[in-house]
Nucleic acid binder design. Structure first.
Length: 670
RNA sequence: GGCGGGGUAGCUCAGUGGUUAGAGCGAAGGUCUCAUAAUCCUUAGGUCGGGGGUUCGAGUCCCCCCCCCGCUACCA
């Protein structure tokens, strides 16, 4: 029997689960149910990543031990997965004893193989991301999250990532399927091609972690620790379960969000190679769910609470929406409107209603017993049957490629044809006519058979609802034991006594639901409706720090003309500054590091004007500075603002803006 | 700035150079009445981002430009 090992990331327990976690986990659950129904021996692992300075600090801030916080949030994940009907086989916590042993062993193996050495590290470290930033003279912002970094100096063990460049590139080349979707693959290839630096894989400044086996005053780098969870979760490093590990590793699919693709396609395979372990077959990065076209975040206040969704829609409708709404891999926009729309039109109207009308007709005409097809099949039945079988094929083709939305589209095409079939045949006109009874039996059996096939296909996506339909069809054997890969047109329903018929996919009252979600009379749905203007309005830039909704009005006000309002303009804080110091930035042709006196404060600004202005011509000079620009680092140096210059000629030579009269430093321009 | 991916009906998207550019959803009208005010049928007048070019013929190939997204960078 084929084995199939699929993983979600181990979620970091510094926060409660959100829609993004839910998405990955639901996808993994759907795939594992699907593979089980193909007869595979499936292992589905999820879990929590519980170490690191970030947890240490968050726990301290709440006045609790890290263990307490980890327990609390790990519990929150498990509860949510239970509510979503997620059936994982393993839930690994990186604080578990067996994981400690595994992490230490992988580290030891890499060490023994000469891929880990002792050195000293001094650098700028982003605690939330657990990442070092490139070297710089003053604290740069984190590449990943833009938050500020802190100086950390410590003895450290380094992983020789640099020696894996060629092997990784060869891996991507020989196994194009290793990184999905292909656009991510290209990004990773470029990143690796640009060269890899050795990676610090231990910390002495952190206590909350797994001791390094060769030096117990060090703790293993939290990403190294967490990634090993994919191995420890199935028994690696645990004598009793070695056979489980050998059975399931390497994984067939590792699902990740696009933000952690690098850890999983660069560091992770390198760690495995260093430890002499096989590599996973496929890492698949998916996109983010956006709300109102913006990334969900607490600060924006546009986070979707999965529990709220469950309360209003139920687990299957949410599962369906997540899998159907967007192609797997792309970002998607979440809106309650779309959620309601999908639920009503797809689940209630197309699927639920087909089930209802089929069962009701059988119940009424054949006394709750599924009839046998007693009249010869016509071309109508032949076509429908043929289409049903090709749908079974198409569904699996798409599912195997993780193209969930396509797989579901194929099923809905079949549902649509079946609804047409009933209308054309109009079985209700035959009721009570003995002569037409065999024909009626055939029609209703055909409909029921399509319902049976569809129910089996959709079981991985809509497990709870399909189980209900299955019972209503009078089926005895468990739905989850059905084999998708052996799904045939059959007569197995004939003679079945129907179960109690109840609507499985109820229609939602859109207005009432939106009112209860947003409060009566609110414009809750207006927000989601602005996706309509997506192409016409300037997109919300991620650095635009406005609340959702306000972007709309400002965008509108400028629509139709290349003008901005005075309100837009006053957002820009222009100040008179005076250059106090200027020096060339090492290793950069065009950059100068300037110290600028802005009256109340002195700032460091990095500007690309070295080729136009020698240092000595700048000191003492008055310039105009954009004072409230987001800080950013250039060549490792933080630049706090931007100076204004005209861009002249083909080569865009900068010419500084200045004043002809005396102006005090710090004066505002308006 | 570099590299990559995109810009097609109100929305989400399909569209191997070739007849009047398609689907689903939404909207409008109609039909049926078995069914969850569901089904089914009809209706979309879209400069296929803009401009050149190749071709008998281009959404589909080439060039230029604009805009969006991602990665990346020595960004006025």
């Amino acid at each position: 029997m084929d084995t199939f090992y699929i993983t979600t990331p181990l979620y970091y327990v510094n926060a409660r689960p959100h829609l993004g976690h839910t998405y990955t986990t639901v996808v993994a659950d759907c795939v594992s149910r699907y593979k089980r129904m193909q007869g595979c021996d499936v292992c589905f692992l999820t879990g929590t990543d519980e170490h690191g300075q970030n947890i240490e600090r968050a726990a301290a801030a709440q006045g609790v031990a890290p263990e307490v916080m980890a327990d609390r949030n790990a519990g929150a994940y498990r509860k949510l997965w239970a509510r979503f009907g997620v059936e994982y086989d393993r839930f690994i916590r990186t604080t578990s004893k067996s994981h400690y042993a595994a992490a230490a062993e992988v580290f030891q193996r890499a060490f023994d193989n000469g891929f880990i050495y002792k050195g000293e590290y001094s650098g700028w470290y982003c605690i939330p991301c657990n990442l070092f930033a490139p070297e710089a003279e003053s604290a740069p912002d984190c590449d990943v999250c833009q938050r500020s970094t802190e100086r950390v100096t410590e003895e450290s063990y380094f992983f020789k990532l640099s020696v894996f460049q060629a092997r990784l590139l060869e891996l991507y080349e020989k196994h194009p399927e290793f990184i999905n979707p292909p656009s991510r693959r290209n990004e990773v290839i470029r990143f690796v091609s640009d060269g890899l630096k050795d990676l610090s894989v231990s910390r002495t400044s952190v206590k909350w972690g797994i001791p390094v086996p060769v030096a117990d005053d060090h703790v293993i780098y939290v990403w190294f620790d967490a990634l090993v969870g994919y191995l420890s979760g199935i028994g690696f490093g645990n004598g009793k379960e070695q056979d489980q590990f050998r059975k399931y590793w390497p994984a067939q699919v590792q699902l990740v969000g696009k933000d952690i693709i690098r850890f999983h396609t660069v560091y992770w395979p390198a760690f495995l190679l260093a430890a002499g372990l096989p590599l996973p077959e496929r890492v698949h990065a998916h996109g983010w769910w956006l709300k109102d076209e913006a990334k969900m975040s607490k600060s924006r206040g546009n986070v979707i609470n999965p529990h709220l969704l469950l309360n209003h829609f139920g687990s299957d409708a949410v599962r369906y929406f997540l899998l159907r709404e967007i192609p797997f891999g792309a970002d998607g926009n979440f809106s309650y409107q779309a959620m309601i729309q999908r639920t009503n039109s797809d689940l209630a109207n197309d699927l639920g209603n087909l089930v209802s009308r089929t069962l009701a007709l059988i119940s009424r005409n054949f006394d709750d017993t599924v009839p046998s097809p007693s009249a010869p099949l016509t071309s109508l039945e032949d076509e429908l049957k043929k289409h049903a079988l090709s749908t079974v094929e198409a569904f699996q083709d798409h599912m195997d490629r993780l193209a969930f939305s396509r797989a579901l589209e194929a099923v809905w095409e079949l549902l649509s044809r079946t609804n047409k079939y009933i209308n054309v045949c109009a079985p209700w006109t035959m009721a009570g006519d003995e002569a037409q009874r065999p024909r009626l039996a055939t029609i209703l059996h055909t409909c029921a058979e399509v319902v049976r096939i569809v129910t089996v296909l959709l079981a991985p996506v809509l497990p709870a609802s399909c189980a209900k339909v299955w019972n209503q069809l009078g089926q005895q054997e468990a739905l989850s034991h059905q084999r998708l890969d052996r799904l045939q047109w059959s007569r197995e329903l004939s003679g079945n006594m129907l179960g109690e018929i109840r609507a499985v996919f109820p229609r939602l009252d859109k207005k009432a639901l939106l009112d209860s979600l947003f409060g009566a009379g609110s414009g809750g749905q207006k927000k989601s409706a602005d996706s309509r203007d997506r192409k016409k309005t300037p997109a919300v830039r991620k650095e635009a720090p406005q609340a959702p909704g306000s972007t709309k009005s400002s965008a509108r006000s400028s629509a139709g003309a290349d003008t901005i309002t005075i309100e837009d303009f006053v957002k820009v804080d222009l100040r008179v500054g005076q250059v106090v110091e200027a020096e060339k930035v090492k290793g950069a042709d065009r950059l100068l590091r300037l110290t600028v006196d802005l009256g109340r404060e002195t700032r460091q600004i990095v500007a690309g004007i070295a080729q136009a202005y020698p240092v000595e011509k700048l000191v003492g000079r008055k310039i105009i500075v954009v004072a409230n620009l987001q800080p950013r680092k250039l060549r490792g140096l933080e630049s706090n603002g931007m100076l204004l210059a005209a861009s002249v000629g083909e080569e865009d030579r900068p010419v500084l803006a200045t004043f002809l009269e005396e102006v005090p430093n710090g004066a505002r321009l308006k």
